[in-house]
């Protein structure tokens, strides 16, 4: 890829921790890469895996999932369910031929604006290194139109 590739990342945040960490980062004027667009959920447990698939299918190059630290969940333990789904999602993505590294799970408490900032910056660079996500082009018969290897990512 050329240097001009700017990844687009959709980030899912928990209302109680990471969304407030983003607020805290803003209030403290910490700077981070503008490639992430956040969606607020009430809890990382709300993250339906189809949200991630939908984001990747709609043009995102990566998806950041954030939640409260283990043990800190506002709803007792739903972040553990997010963790389970995250692990399953990575396997599913692998099965589909998509690099599992395109999704990342980060725990960030409301106080951790700096941590969230650093994680976002790191993730943007990781996705930049992976390059854009190329989904295969399917035709109406369910076959790929292009014969090129579907998920080879050129450096």
């Amino acid at each position: 890829m050329t240097d001009s590739f700017e990844p687009v990342i959709v980030g899912f945040t928990c209302n109680w921790c990471s969304y407030r960490a983003a607020d805290a980062a803003g209030t403290a004027r910490m700077k981070y890469a503008p490639n992430v667009r956040l969606i607020r959920l009430m809890c990382s447990g709300r993250l339906d895996p189809t949200f991630v698939m939908k984001a990747l299918a709609s043009g995102a190059d990566g998806v950041l999932i954030t939640g409260c630290h283990p043990g800190d969940c506002h709803y007792i333990d739903q972040n553990y369910k997010a963790l389970r789904r995250f692990l399953l999602l990575r396997r599913t993505l692998k099965g589909l031929g998509v690099e599992p590294e395109r999704i990342k799970l980060v725990w960030a408490s409301a106080a951790e604006g700096l941590k969230l900032t650093n994680e976002i910056n790191a993730f943007v660079e990781e996705i930049r290194a992976l390059g854009p996500l190329h989904w295969p082009k399917w035709d109406s018969n369910g076959h790929t139109a292009e014969k090129q290897p579907i998920l080879e990512v050129t450096a």
Partner: peptide, 10 residues
């Protein structure tokens, strides 16, 4: 219900 949405996702 506290509205976390875990069951919705599941």
């Amino acid at each position: 219900c506290q509205g976390c949405g875990t069951c919705v996702a599941a």
